[in-house]
């Protein structure tokens, strides 16, 4: 099964040095997952201060500054993994550095049959 692991946390929970260290550990985890055949994708996201929200209502596009929801804990990055079951996915979520200060939301992915395969 495929799962998306969404990393939520307060953006001020770590400073710049800790963030750099976190990127390093997260990249290592991505390589480890690749080696075990469980890696499909991962990325950190820039701060929510860079977020732009887009809605189309009655055919009219509305663009606003800011994230979908103003909350203290924000989406800061994600992994997409391949795991046999939820227990395995939880085991991987536990290894994400952000789990130590934020929350990892584990979401099973709906696999649509007719999506394009990997971008090349």
């Amino acid at each position: 099964m495929k799962y998306m692991l969404l990393i939520y946390g307060a953006e001020d929970a770590i400073d710049d040095n800790e963030r750099e260290a976190c990127y390093g550990k997260s990249s290592q985890l991505a390589h480890d997952l690749k080696a075990s055949g469980q890696y499909l994708g991962a990325s950190p996201l820039h701060s929510v201060s860079t977020a732009t929200s887009v809605r189309v209502r009655s055919g009219k596009r509305m663009v606003t500054d800011g994230p979908f929801a103003e909350t203290r804990e924000q989406l800061g990055g994600y992994y997409v993994i391949d795991a046999t079951d939820l227990d395995e996915a939880i085991g991987i979520a536990e290894r994400i550095p952000g789990a130590a200060w934020g929350t990892i939301e584990v979401r099973p992915i709906v696999e649509l049959p007719n999506l394009p395969t990997d971008a090349t």
């Binding site: 795991a83 046999t84 939820l86 227990d87 996915a89 099973p108």
Partner: peptide, 13 residues
């Protein structure tokens, strides 16, 4: 849908 396994947990869990 979330793939909760039908198994006895591993020793460490």
């Amino acid at each position: 849908n979330a793939g909760i396994p039908y198994q006895v947990p591993s020793h460490n869990e």
